[in-house]
Amino acid sequence: MNINDVMNFLKQYDGDDITIMEVCGTHTASISENAIPSLISDKIHLISGPGCPVCVTVSDYVDRLIELALNGNVIVTFGDMIRVPGSRQALADIKAQGADIRMVYSPIQTIELAKAEPDRSFVFAAVGFETTTPIYALLLDEIIRQGIENIKLLTALKTMPNVIARMCESENTIDGFLAPGHVAVITGSEAFAPLAERYNLPFAVSGFEAEEILASIYALVKLRGTGKVINLYKSAVNEKKNEKASDIVNKYLEPYDASWRGLGVIKDSGMAIKSEYSRYDAGSRELVNDYSHKNGCSCKDIITGIKKPTDCPLYNTACTPESPKGACMVSNEGACFNYITNNRK
């Protein structure tokens, strides 16, 4: 079936209502940028799940970064994390007051920064899913190999399977998942097979172009009610996991019970630095509390698909991309950011 046939089918679909959740921030962005909801039937509902790494990071993590910065450490991070609110402030606030917060495009840049100032302590903010976790493991590997003593990592590294299981058991009625393509490059499409079988739900591993997403939605509609994984991103995703990436991750990191914004602690849903390498950990395992809801933000319901961004009382009033109150409005992978910037309905 060609793409025109796919689009005609999806636009004219008049069967039972069907809800599909994407659990990848890049899919969230692409769906919005390409106005995909306007290309499909009103009976096919697309909702965003916990697929934006910044959005699912608890406020305790931001508070810890702020504490480290105020104690004289140099915080090294990607741009999005600088603006994510903690319980009271964001890194951007204390940067404006003189704290040393540095943005990089690659974690490996931290090594050169630390070498240039050996008398200062550097903390890299390592946030992400299976996609980026191997990069942080490689950073740790290089720090140890070079004997660098003035770098630590503060990690908030999450894994997908157990949080997807939580979504399957939530109050939402989800009929299928757009499986995260970037994650699947590392985990292989087989990572989603146990979930498909357990919950009798279809998973479509999808690329990120509009045609790829539409084809995946079509597949999920056709596969509704069947516990099957279909890989529609074969140019990048194999059935089996990436062994090389898995080996470097397992050398330095281990599963632990991670805390998610709006979801609490989920068993074995994160990766933390092993105890034998704890000297390189800036206190990651203790970060469990989340206070983001106290300002009236509905982020915890938005990242689980219970509410749309427009249901939040702060949306596009007190909370905007220029002045975000919640993490979902900060990242270009966040649902709220994409609703506003792309006028998604």
Rank of each mutant, 00 (worst) to 15 (best):
residue 7 M to P: 04
residue 9 F to R: 03
residue 10 L to H: 06
residue 12 Q to Y: 06
residue 13 Y to D: 02
residue 17 D to S: 10
residue 27 H to S: 08
residue 29 A to F: 15
residue 29 A to L: 11
residue 36 I to K: 03
residue 40 I to S: 01
residue 41 S to K: 02
residue 43 K to S: 02
residue 43 K to N: 09
residue 46 L to Y: 04
residue 49 G to N: 03
residue 54 V to G: 01
residue 56 V to W: 11
residue 59 S to A: 10
residue 59 S to Q: 03
residue 61 Y to E: 00
residue 65 L to W: 10
residue 67 E to C: 06
residue 75 I to K: 01
residue 77 T to N: 08
residue 82 I to V: 15
residue 83 R to A: 14
residue 88 R to D: 14
residue 111 I to E: 11
residue 115 K to A: 00
residue 117 E to K: 05
residue 126 A to K: 05
residue 126 A to Y: 09
residue 128 G to N: 06
residue 128 G to Q: 03
residue 132 T to M: 14
residue 137 A to I: 05
residue 137 A to S: 14
residue 140 L to T: 08
residue 146 Q to D: 07
residue 152 K to Y: 13
residue 153 L to R: 06
residue 154 L to M: 01
residue 167 M to I: 01
residue 172 N to P: 06
residue 172 N to E: 11
residue 174 I to N: 05
residue 177 F to M: 08
residue 177 F to L: 09
residue 177 F to A: 08
residue 178 L to Y: 05
residue 179 A to T: 04
residue 186 I to V: 15
residue 196 A to T: 02
residue 196 A to W: 10
residue 199 Y to G: 03
residue 200 N to R: 00
residue 203 F to K: 00
residue 204 A to W: 10
residue 205 V to M: 04
residue 209 E to K: 04
residue 209 E to H: 06
residue 210 A to V: 09
residue 213 I to Q: 00
residue 213 I to M: 02
residue 214 L to R: 00
residue 217 I to H: 02
residue 220 L to M: 03
residue 240 K to P: 05
residue 242 N to E: 10
residue 244 K to M: 05
residue 246 S to A: 15
residue 246 S to N: 15
residue 254 E to F: 01
residue 257 D to T: 12
residue 257 D to M: 07
residue 262 G to R: 07
residue 263 L to S: 03
residue 269 S to R: 12
residue 270 G to P: 09
residue 283 G to P: 05
residue 295 N to V: 14
residue 300 K to Q: 13
residue 301 D to M: 10
residue 301 D to A: 09
residue 303 I to F: 12
residue 307 K to P: 05
residue 321 P to V: 11
residue 324 P to L: 02
residue 324 P to Y: 04
residue 327 A to N: 07
residue 341 T to F: 08
residue 341 T to I: 07
residue 344 R to Y: 09
